[in-house]
């Protein structure tokens, strides 16, 4: 039997390294499932899962949907627009309505930090955080960790640098927790205006220039720069951002070792990352996507409610064993 993850997956900050490794190890066999001609296993047959997305997201939602369907679960997608949320229904009421419909699991993306934990405390269904405000995006960090592990054979001792808008990035926060717990060294690189206060107190190295980050890192995880950051005045223009912090082949050539390139997607080609780098030999961006489905299957599988008391009853009655 494996160790338990609890009822919800809200973030990586409070998971133990063992729990994180459990998820990564469980993801491996699920990768194989996605290679089969019939990409379906009955493990979550009959479970109802709601994908509750208060923020637009195509790729994360689709990834979860594939994961759910490949586990034979029944899925329902709820998007914020057109649902009762846009009419002003509170998060609490949405939660209660879902529970009243006897949903087994909820995968939620919400613009407010803390929303996933908030929901998890109020409903019995399992809650999986698909991104809450700027707080965490645990499945993204988990698939990032799996991708790094696949490529480098380990995570401990590796130097991983997150590049870009760390201040507003839940992917960065989750990665920070996951990488630190598994023994990697974490760096961040970007304009000061996009760095969170106190980040160095969390044991993270700060590089003001991308050239310094490239000299240090084994892996670069390049974060998406959003247009709003320019509109809100954090940086003067996307052009300048690319000129100063863009990950380009010319800059990478200067590095003393080959650097694995990652990106959570969707990419702004020519803003945070050059196309030649994204499509280059050291890019594992597409592996991240493949691993995403496997990691999400692993998380759903591990969280899906068993009822241990039935197991005890079964053991007492039938004399146990499925041989």
């Amino acid at each position: 039997m494996t160790a338990s993850l609890g009822k919800d997956l809200v973030g990586l900050e409070h998971l133990t390294p063992e729990q994180i490794r459990l998820i990564l190890d469980t993801a491996e066999p699920f990768k194989e499932v996605s290679e089969r001609p019939i990409k379906k296993v009955p493990a979550l047959r009959g479970k109802t899962i709601v994908n509750l997305f208060f923020e637009a997201s195509t790729r994360t939602r689709i990834s979860f949907e594939f994961a759910e369907k490949r586990l034979s679960a029944d899925t329902v997608n709820v998007a914020a627009s057109g649902s009762s949320v846009s009419k002003g229904e509170t998060l609490v009421d949405t939660a209660k309505n879902l529970e009243a419909m006897r949903i087994d699991m909820v995968v939620m993306r919400h613009p407010s930090s803390g929303a996933a934990g908030f929901l998890g405390q109020r409903i019995r269904s399992n809650v999986i955080n698909a991104g809450d405000g700027k707080h965490e995006h645990p499945t993204q960090a988990l698939l990032d960790l799996l991708t790094i592990r696949d490529k480098h054979g380990k995570i401990e001792g590796l130097k991983v640098c997150l590049v870009g808008d760390v201040l507003h990035s839940r992917v960065a926060r989750s990665n920070l927790w996951g990488l630190t717990k598994l023994g990697a060294q974490v760096g961040v690189c970007g304009p000061h205006t996009l760095m969170p206060r106190g980040i160095e107190e969390l044991g993270v190295k700060f590089f003001p220039r991308i050239e310094e980050a490239i000299e240090w890192a084994d892996v670069l995880n390049v974060l998406r720069l959003q247009l709003e950051r320019m509109e809100m005045g954090f940086i003067p223009s996307l052009r300048e951002y690319y000129r100063v912090w863009g990950v380009t082949p010319e800059r990478l050539e200067r590095s003393p070792r080959p650097i694995t390139i990652m990106h959570p997607g969707p990419m702004n080609r020519g803003v945070e990352i050059d196309s030649r780098v994204a499509d280059g030999p050291h890019s594992v961006i597409l592996d991240q996507v493949t691993n995403g489905v496997a990691v999400r299957m692993a998380v759903l599988y591990l969280l899906a409610g068993g009822r241990p008391e039935l197991a005890d009853a079964a053991k007492r009655g039938a004399g146990g064993g499925t041989e």
């Binding site: 930090s113 803390g114 809450d132 700027k134 839940r170 926060r173 206060r197 106190g198 969390l202």
Partner: peptide, 13 residues
Amino acid sequence: HEGLVASRLGLKG
């Protein structure tokens, strides 16, 4: 308050 706690919680300070 803008500080380390806000950074960890992902809240604007």
